[in-house]
Amino acid sequence: MSGRPSSFKVLARVSFGSLRSFGKQIQSRLLAARFSTYLQGILKNADFKDIASRYVELVAEARSAEEHRILDSLISMPNASPSFDAVETSKLPAETSVTVIEAEPGAGKTWALGFLAWQHADKFLSAENSVCRIPVYLELKLLAYQGSGHTIATTIQHELNSCIGPSREIPWDSLLLLVDGLNEVAPQAQANFKAELKDLLAKHPTLHVVVTRAPEFVPW
């Protein structure tokens, strides 16, 4: 019997697991209540609604070794093989902290990002999926135009303004940051964005981000 955990230990482990899961659910519901106005706003937004009604699930795959060789000739190909062949774009944020969707113009980057915003708002509100997060959609070119005083953090504060109260505390660990058009801003603005994102990820490792960009080399 010594090799088997006692009933008490099993029970304690199960109870602890259930408690943790219950705690997460409570936290998620409290956040949904606090951010309901903001999330409803996304669901009522004409652009997101339109995307959600017309969206066709797109499929993403890891960049091939050949593409990597052509596009990243200065750095060596990692030895590890891809752990996935293909994944539906709506499931991308759940898989990793930072995902970069790279595709040519018209390939559906903005479409996929818009759908992610709508889907996460919908599921977060309906408690359908505990993996869902509070989506914040940013068009980088609009952020870049606002000048150096505007950062990702201030823009998110502005977006969530009505829900974060006087403390201005952003729930980073429950956010899904959706950033569209990295290639559409000047190199300096790209560098600023990446530097700030690096800091944010260091402070909030569970923050999830999806960035879209067109490849620098577009095969015509």
Binding site: I75, V87, T96, I101, A195
Partner: peptide, 29 residues
């Protein structure tokens, strides 16, 4: 899970990010 370092003008050396490309649509899509 597979993480690719980006190229110099992207995410290289800054933080790990998974870079994915979108597949062309199938007949069904």
């Amino acid at each position: 899970m597979w993480s690719l370092p980006g190229r110099p003008s992207s995410f290289r050396g800054e933080f790990s990010a998974r870079i994915v490309v979108l597949r062309p649509m199938t007949d069904k899509q």
